[in-house]
Amino acid sequence: MRLSNVTAIFLACLTLAGCAANSRPATVQAGRPSEETTGSVAQSAVPVPAADIGDVAAQAAPPQETLAWAGSIPQPQAFAPASRTVGAPVPSDRPIAMLSPDKPEMGTAPQTRSQIYSYGFRDAKPINFGSISPRKLAVHGVDVSRWQAEIDWERLRRQGANFAYIKATDGGDHLDPMFKKNWRRAKEAGLKRGAYHFFYWCRTAGEQADWFIRNVPKEAGALPPVIDVEWNGESSCKRRPSRERVLEKMQVFMDKLERHYGQRPIIYTAPDFYRDNLKGAFLDYPFWLRSVAAHPSKVYPKRKWVFWQYSGSGLSHGVDGRIDLNVFHGDEGDWHDWVASR
């Protein structure tokens, strides 16, 4: 053959190879699960599966934090911290009044009242809360993540878990490897359940909201989504933004979730983060407060709450190791009314 023919054949082969490579579906293997831990920090010795994040494009390195918004926004919203916090109506003591924004319905869910199972948990580090003990409240529940490994949801419910918040995502690219299974099994066992996102301060708020929306189903009857905001010394992200920046990022994330799910997100937080950033802020949002040594009224004065995480060392049938214990702020009637309003 002449040299020109050889060259032409060689170039044609390269072109065909490139087309064949580009015709394959893009796939990505989940990386090592995030090292973030929240609530129950004791890691299970039982291996858990790698996260299945579906058929997605390869994950890029975290973007530089220049703008809070990331991704396409259905409708622009300007952030004005003062207008959302200063002068906002203070919700009443009844938890029902805290979560009644006018939002579109997601679908029709059967309005049947589920059985309430009474408290049956034990605690590895019991606290005497005195006359304001969480045991005096009627509706208890749990929050879980991959660290609880395999859960017997039927036994856990009979032990007193009437609701469950399940770890779904953290940051902009981590999916809890047990989320899909826990989400399905909790519903099958008859628990009311919702999903929570652990917020990274080194990722954009819009990017994190998009990741949560991508992985958490929009289902009628699900509890409101939760944004978990706290300082975590174990995180690879050591950034601690200013209070103003924290409130801005949270607002961006919560606005996006509220538009998508039709429910105002719940804010989960811990005492130190609340003191640094949230005191006096987001008065028109429901709160889930961690307070494992005293009643929330002592740790978060004047803050209204819907859920109280009162223990990180709970023990229960159906779970190996410790589990976070929570309680709803109200009686059984309040609970049924609140769930129906979702």
Rank of each mutant, 00 (worst) to 15 (best):
E150M: 00
E35D: 10
N215I: 12
G190W: 07
V306A: 05
Q115S: 14
R203D: 11
P47Y: 01
D324T: 05
S100Y: 04
F287L: 09
K136A: 14
P81K: 13
A17D: 08
E150I: 14
T38E: 09
N232F: 15
I9R: 12
P25F: 02
Y119H: 12
R135Q: 10
S92G: 12
F307Q: 00
L175G: 05
A186M: 08
K181V: 04
P76D: 07
E234F: 03
A270L: 11
G160Q: 02
V299M: 13
S118N: 04
Y117V: 00
A124E: 13
P217Y: 03
D173Y: 09
V299F: 07
A186E: 00
G71E: 10
D284R: 12
G18A: 07
A294W: 04
D272E: 08
C237L: 01
T37I: 14
R158C: 00
Q64H: 12
Q75C: 03
T66K: 06
W338N: 14
G321P: 10
V144P: 13
R264Q: 12
S40C: 07
T37H: 15
R264P: 13
D170K: 02
G333T: 10
P63L: 13
D320S: 15
A68H: 11
H197L: 15
T85Y: 12
D228Y: 02
N215G: 05
L175R: 09
L283R: 12
K192P: 03
S341W: 10
E36W: 01
Y261M: 04
L283G: 14
K187C: 08
S311R: 01
R259M: 04
L137D: 06
E207Q: 15
R122C: 14
P104E: 09
E105M: 15
E35K: 10
R245T: 15
E36N: 02
F273V: 03
A12D: 13
Q111E: 09
A60P: 09
F10C: 11
H295E: 01
P49Q: 06
E207M: 13
L11P: 08
L16W: 07
K103Y: 12
M98Y: 12
W69R: 10
P241R: 02
R24V: 04
T169E: 07
I323M: 05
V246T: 00
Y285T: 12
A80S: 10
F307D: 05
C202H: 07
H197K: 03
S242P: 02
L283E: 15
P126I: 06
Q77V: 05
Q159G: 09
D272T: 05
D170W: 09
Q251N: 07
F273Y: 11
